[in-house]
């Protein structure tokens, strides 16, 4: 069992947990993920490790409640435990000094990007960060990102906060800025966003690393459920990734593949929402 030490709500559906996992906290590097199972009978789901505190023996996970398992998870609080947490899995992000880099985060992907931006800054890069969200209240980690970035630009799809538009608009403006000198782009967010960023940077010839979320069961290279096509080759996101060259990823295939269980995920979602509502009503009584 893995104890939840702290819980913090970052946005209406986005929650941060600090979880006791001393072995993982010691070893974790930017870009690593864990597989977790909330309770018996639950799914194993991958979550990127946003941060860690080796002294305390804790790791930080930031979760968006979008499906049954993540809703169940965000219903947990400090003092509760997760049944299983295993990691750190996947390859750490390759961090080098490129000179100037752009870090582009979309939605909860910003949480995954944060440790990478920190590491890039520590490696001596000039870091320009672009954070995108659908609407104002979903913008997360703006201040935290500012601590490791030379500039932070926020975009919202609906214009409710900061710059109206998509992250690609802001990125294009940055790349077009004379003398911006961006040598590498790190993009993490929803697949359509990473695809759009990769398409944009391809025209500029700027190397782009994306972090992919795929179907996954074990997370250690055993099931092959996470397979995708990168540069015409079959790759496993869990052991070959989760980060890949955005210009080589077949995003369209991956987006279709990720829809495999959409209808069944809806059933799980409804089941957990029903259960959680019942629990809440019980508590109110």
């Amino acid at each position: 069992m893995f104890l939840i030490l702290r819980k913090k709500v970052l946005a209406p559906t986005v929650t941060q947990f600090d979880v006791k996992a001393p072995f993982i906290a010691r070893k974790r590097k930017a870009g690593n993920f864990v597989m977790i199972r909330v309770e018996e009978g639950g799914e194993r789901i991958p979550l990127t490790i946003a941060d860690s505190n080796p002294a305390e023996g804790s790791i930080t996970l930031i979760v968006q409640a979008i499906g049954g398992t993540t809703k169940l998870l965000t219903s947990k609080g400090a003092g509760d435990s997760l049944l299983d947490v295993v990691g750190p899995l996947g390859n750490p992000t390759p961090i080098e000094n490129h000179g100037v880099v752009a870090c582009v985060g979309g939605g909860v992907g910003t949480a995954e990007l944060f440790p990478i931006a920190q590491a890039l800054k520590a490696a001596g890069n000039v870091v320009h960060t672009i954070i995108g969200a659908r609407t104002r209240e979903l913008v997360i980690l703006e201040q935290e990102m500012a601590t490791c970035s030379d500039s932070v630009t926020v975009t919202t799809d609906d214009g409710s906060y900061a710059r109206k538009g998509f992250v690609t608009d802001a990125l294009k403006a940055l790349l077009d800025l004379p003398g911006s000198g961006v040598h590498a782009v790190y993009a993490i967010g929803p697949l359509p966003m990473m695809k759009a960023v990769s398409n944009l940077t391809r025209t500029y010839g700027i190397a782009t690393l994306v972090s992919l979320n795929t179907i996954m069961v074990d997370g250690t290279g055993m099931c092959g459920g996470c397979r995708l096509t990168v540069g015409g080759q079959m790759k496993f996101a869990c052991v070959d990734g989760p980060e890949f060259d955005g210009h080589a990823v077949d995003f369209d295939e991956l987006m279709k593949r990720n829809r495999t269980y959409v209808d069944m995920e809806k059933i799980t979602d409804e089941r957990h929402v029903c259960r959680l509502t019942a629990v809440r009503q019980e508590e109110i009584r």
Binding site: R44, Y261, M264, E265
Partner: peptide
């Protein structure tokens, strides 16, 4: 391992 044959009682589809 995940008991998917008991979906939706178990979550794994």
């Amino acid at each position: 391992l995940m008991g998917a044959y008991r979906f939706p009682e178990n979550d794994t589809p």
